[in-house]
């Protein structure tokens, strides 16, 4: 199913972001530390507890998920865009690698970056707060499936995008609102009914609360449904990304 060249491409994708660690790993850590400091320490005491969890600990799964989603998406979309922009994507397209293999290799690279960023934010939280993980296995499962889903989304956007603006627009107009309205900083029960109903159709709301359940043992949603939604998104986006690559959509003349 996968040729040896596939593993070389995966290696290339992981090496790329590790070499650029100042751009790919540090920003997530710094922004999460600032969120914990500002929202957790400064505002948390005023808000009190949510479902018997301190506000600071309550927002950590959301911060982890924001970092995971953002970095997984950024990795595959920007790596692909660079390869398109500088034309070295052609060096891959002429190899015996199939479109499926190339797309999956990009997704795995993105998943690794999302996962590492997520783990780093969790470790940082453990250092700065009394945050602990309730279910390590389920936490890893969420981090991997959500990284995979948004890594695949990054491949789709990376293939579709004609300019760097397209990549940035998706972050600004899709991920940021969905993250903020996905219950990172509050429980759905704190919202008016209208916004509560709106949040129910936000996939990020389910993913964030799935991770919240895995780490804190509490959440607004069923962890099973959250996991199923994450897996369905991962499979759907991967399939679309693979078809786009195999057909050569916007990458072959």
């Amino acid at each position: 199913m996968f040729s040896s060249g596939f593993f070389v491409l995966v290696q290339r994708e992981v090496l790329r972001f590790l070499r650029l660690w100042k751009q790919t790993l540090m920003p997530g850590l710094i922004s999460s530390a600032l969120y914990i400091l500002v929202f957790g320490h400064a505002l948390g005491a005023r808000i009190g507890q949510i479902k018997d969890i301190s506000y600071m600990n309550y927002i950590i799964p959301g911060l982890v998920m924001m970092s995971v989603i953002n970095h997984a998406y950024q990795n595959s979309s920007s790596s692909l865009m660079q390869a398109k922009f500088l034309k070295f994507l052609d060096d891959l397209l002429i190899t015996p690698l199939s479109g499926f293999e190339i797309s999956v290799a990009y997704i795995i690279g993105a998943t690794c970056r999302g996962l590492i960023n997520g783990i780093m934010v969790i470790l940082l939280s453990m250092v700065l707060t009394d945050f602990t993980i309730d279910n390590v296995f389920l936490t890893c499962l969420y981090l991997i499936t959500v990284s995979w889903a948004f890594g695949a989304m990054g491949v789709i956007v990376g293939v579709y995008a004609k300019t760097w603006d397209h990549i940035g627009m998706f972050t600004t107009f899709v991920f940021m609102p969905l993250s903020m309205l996905g219950g990172v900083f509050w429980s759905i029960e704190m919202l008016p009914e209208f916004w509560r109903n709106i949040s129910m159709v936000n996939p990020l709301y389910w993913m964030i609360n799935g991770l919240r359940y895995a780490t804190l043992g509490v959440g607004d949603t069923s962890p099973e449904i959250s996991l199923i939604i994450s897996i369905v998104f991962a499979i759907t986006f991967s399939t679309i990304a693979s078809i786009m690559f195999s057909k050569g959509y916007r990458i072959k003349a």
């Binding site: 060249g5 290339r12 790329r16 034309k87 070295f88 060096d91 190899t95 015996p96």
Partner: peptide
């Protein structure tokens, strides 16, 4: 069975040219 040198120069800017050649060979197995 084929190796192509395209007209337009293109390079993976993240790697040295030796690494780049090793990667390219790796893609071919």
């Amino acid at each position: 069975l084929m190796g192509l040198s395209p007209q337009e120069l293109n390079f993976d800017v993240f790697f040295s040219i030796r690494q780049l050649l090793i990667l390219q060979a790796g893609y071919y197995g």
